[in-house]
Amino acid sequence: MRKVAAIVIASAFFAILLISFYQIPQSGYSGSEYYYSNPITGSHANESVPSHYISGTKNETGAVNAVTAIVVEYRGFDTLGEVTVLFTAATGVAFLLHKGKGGKKRAEANLILREGSKLVLPFILLAGAYIFIHGHLTPGGGFPGGAVIASGFLLMMLSYPKFFMKEKPVSITESFAGITFAVIGLLGLLFASSFLENFLPLGNAGYLLSAGIIPVIYIAIGFKVGSELSSIADKFKEVQK
């Protein structure tokens, strides 16, 4: 009975979503119906927000990757928030699971897995670092880069049952990366006019050293996400019985 009710509700919900999906107007970015209004001055612009993102990215932020420009510059405050969500989750996991170490012995992984993972670990870490350092030039950025790094450590945890993340360096990395992000935001308040505003020279778009604060923030995010995700995985491994 419950199952039938669940199926009925789920399919009704699915139908509603499908119908509304077909109702979404398919028009593109341009067109004057998407003008926006500025709440502070009360003026109207004849451009939609997405088209502003596409046309303004290079001049306003110096980044080539528009997604990065949106994530770190236009909506950088949201990114600070999202990093904090992950930080909160990692802290919560550590808070709830920090008791009970050890656990049952697991068999050693076989030779090929052990040596192979030792061999690929540096390359995984390198790929992660590449992804977050080049966030303003190529697809990717702090979150994916950090996740790739964490998956490298995860590989080590899987192939070596005795592999542990040392708690202290991980939590110090995490803290310093977070502090860097927040302090850059506050420096923006100090040197420029608002929180998280760019205060470094933009440089030539397309070069590694360009786009002002974006690479700095993305490196901080990369370290932070990497250390947080690997510490979450490590905490779950630690309490295994």
């Binding site: 993102y53 306003e60 236009y74 405050f77 949201d78 929180f195 760019n198």
Partner: peptide, 17 residues
């Protein structure tokens, strides 16, 4: 009171109201 964040005017950037 309105405060813009990251120096972009509101609909493009974020603001506190």
């Amino acid at each position: 009171l309105y405060e813009t964040i990251a120096g972009f005017s509101p609909p493009v950037g974020i603001y506190l109201a």
